[in-house]
Simulated assay, not measured.
Amino acid sequence: MRVELLQILFFAGLAVFIGIRLYMVLGRQVGRSPEEHAREEAEKSVAREASVPARETAGIQDASAPAAAALSAVDVEEAAYDGLEAIADADPGFDAAEFVQGARAAYGMIAGAFARGDVDALEPLLAPRVMKAYREAIEARAAKGETLTTEIDRIKETRLQEASLNGPKAKIKVRFVAEIAHETRAADGSVVSGDIAALHPVAEIWSFERDVTSDNPNWRLSAVRPA
């Protein structure tokens, strides 16, 4: 009996530890405590429930309930809900929380690859039009003998701003707010612009798109503009 009790306590402690690690890795929003984050999500959930027509009282099952439950875990503008649910209907494998996690990872990978001039790393992450613009910028920088260093201190906000489904093409606009340092140096090592020791807030809207009928699950960056 004592052994069973110790096993229960051990696994309970392990579950708490794993939960804390997942929370730290998968995008804790900087600047807010866990309690504040939980309270904000609860308020969002109540607001969404209040705006949904009372179809359940008439005995009609709400087919969008699973999608709505998944969306409660991410930061979403009200205008994006219909589009996200349409994407989830067209692609049952779509998960908003996983998309946000992937978008945050892509933000760092794309910024880093552009700074390094790594076109091979950028190719699978960018839509053709964006890839062309990035390639031209990298080639122009190389022609001058300049090097770019970029450091992302933290991503403070990842908000799903807009979403749409036009035929098979799904598009999601994400508002990123990050603290970033840039520095460009000439071939002789002198600083051309920026300061790697100085962080600056950067707010941008990144548009990602994907063909939901494709076997390729990856989203590609199709546009970037200031927020």
Rank of each mutant, 00 (worst) to 15 (best):
D118A: 14
I8M: 12
S51A: 15
F94T: 07
S33T: 15
A140Y: 08
T184H: 03
R28N: 10
T147D: 07
L22S: 06
S207G: 12
I110N: 08
A103N: 09
A105V: 08
A69S: 15
A140I: 10
S64N: 10
D195P: 05
G145W: 10
E36L: 11
P66V: 01
A143W: 09
R104H: 06
I155C: 03
R210D: 03
L22T: 04
R129S: 14
A223M: 02
V191F: 07
D82H: 03
V76S: 04
K169Q: 15
L22W: 06
A42L: 13
A186T: 10
A163P: 06
R225I: 06
A186H: 13
V174I: 15
A197W: 02
T184G: 03
M24Y: 05
V130P: 00
A42R: 13
V174F: 12
V130L: 07
P34Y: 09
S51E: 15
K173G: 15
E56P: 01
V224D: 00
I18F: 14
R185F: 01
W219V: 04
W206C: 03
Y81K: 04
A181M: 01
F94H: 05
L148M: 11
E36C: 09
I155G: 01
E41I: 14
D91E: 15
E162V: 03
V16I: 12
L14P: 11
M109R: 09
Y81P: 01
V100W: 02
S190R: 14
D195E: 08
L6I: 11
R116T: 00
P53W: 07
F208W: 14
M131D: 02
M131E: 06
A79N: 05
E139A: 07
A96Y: 01
S190I: 07
D153C: 00
V224K: 02
E157V: 15
V25M: 12
E36M: 13
V224S: 00
I155H: 02
K144T: 09
N218G: 04
A197N: 11
A187G: 04
A80V: 02
R39E: 14
